[in-house]
Design a protein around this nucleic acid. Structure first.
Lengths: 237, 237
DNA sequence: TAGATTGTTAATCGATTAACAATC
DNA sequence: TAGATTGTTAATCGATTAACAATC
């Protein structure tokens, strides 16, 4: 019944680079679509884990609680990943999403700030799953310098420029306190690092690196907002 | 020049409850607006810290990088907080935003999972700033039970139902691993807790509590996406 | 009063959904 | 071939921006 052999290399209309990464046109992709890509990544992983080899936009829409139309629209921003009458090959689609998000390309990063947040992050499997290798942590505290947190060494902030000169670092995870943020961001820029994942809450206006700000508290407030209001079960207001 | 005395109690068109919290109509507020409210909260705090007493939508729009029109539109979802020809009284506006988000009402919460993430969270000033008191942590690990993390006691998960019966808990912060999530979510529901701040990555479909999911990895992938693509300075791919 | 700035309506823009022809 | 499901265009919906009258 499933003799419809799906060819993995079917849509290589895009040129391929030497390192095997595809040239993907990201310029015409709307912010709304970009924000949804990580969700596809997560759900496709789950489908693979469950051993599912094939999925239709209709099925996926039920699992993800979005419309099938949106899924097809989203995926088509990057080219035709599916096959009429068949649907999508899960592992093929996953591979393409990984390419789009850079997971297959791979990244190296450092964590600056080895406090409880930095430590929690480095210990999580999050980075590895997403093709990010944390190669070092940095801190100013003598208590932490020289220690090993979850398999990653903590170095003195003084050695940071030297380390960056010796290693290719794609981005820095910034988990220092708000007060130190501006200074450290300057050092990151100076070291030629192109990206900052910023947990400090400090507004990194000046930098010309790509900055992604995390405001975990915003999520908390969305919850408290909803706990105040009408969202009690069966109660309007 | 600033003889335009701003009356703090000017817009108490809404009825006030016994505990001093205002009745706010949240039913007709769009998701887009709700998501922006925590940003207002943050920027208004910053203005207060800087000693600013008055701000116009124009000024605020420059600071926040949004249009003045949007700010006025957003704030007007909840009533007229400003004054023509004057602008907005910063501390008054902040107080109203705090009411809307529930900060002034106050919440009690527990953290379930005293691993590195739970520990990092409980140590951060985030909760206190937002009117949330973490009254207890729970874990199954004998190594952690009985310990004190950042001033908060860690109790056995076995004592969880008992604890919840004895204390009013508004929501639970769920930082257990994905595998334990479903089980613990069940216990939370059973304990009558109405909200879950879910860090597990597990999809809490069944619960009738208000669930706010945190997917920190999604933010990471937005960064890696941008690091792949055209967002190099002055390079249109 | 004149100037400033809100609150609010109308116009624009972008994102989502529906529909269907193409095609596997 | 018939059935299924994509890719894609057109229609709808919602959110943002512009404009301006109201008013402090």
């Amino acid at each position: 019944m499933e003799n419809n052999q799906f060819e993995l290399d079917k849509t290589v209309a895009e040129a391929e680079n030497a390192d095997g990464t595809a040239n993907i046109d990201r310029s015409h992709v709307s912010p709304a679509v970009i924000k949804r890509l990580p969700r596809y990544f997560r759900y496709l992983r789950e489908l693979i884990r469950r051993g599912k080899t094939r999925v239709s936009s209709g099925e996926l829409s039920e699992i993800m609680n979005v419309t099938a139309s949106q899924i097809r629209q989203d995926l088509n921003c990057f080219g035709g990943f599916g096959q009429q009458g068949y649907g999508y090959n899960v592992s093929y689609l996953y591979a393409r999403i990984c390419e789009i998000l850079g997971v297959s390309r791979g990244f190296t990063a450092v964590i600056i700030g080895a406090g409880s947040l930095g430590s929690a992050l480095v210990r999580s499997p999050m980075f590895e799953k997403r093709g990010v290798e944390i190669v070092a942590m940095f801190d100013v505290s003598p208590r932490l310098i020289g220690s090993n947190i979850g398999g990653t060494m903590v170095y003195s902030m003084e050695s940071f420029p030297e380390y960056c000169a010796a290693h290719r670092i794609d981005f820095a995870v910034l988990t220092v306190n708000k007060e130190a943020a501006a200074d450290v961001a300057g050092q990151i820029s100076e070291a030629g690092i192109r990206g900052i994942w910023n947990f400090t809450g400090y507004e990194l206006g000046e930098t010309d690196a790509v900055v992604e700000n995390v405001h975990i508290g915003d999520s908390l407030m969305t919850l408290t907002y909803r706990l105040c209001g009408g969202e009690r079960s069966g109660n309007g207001n």
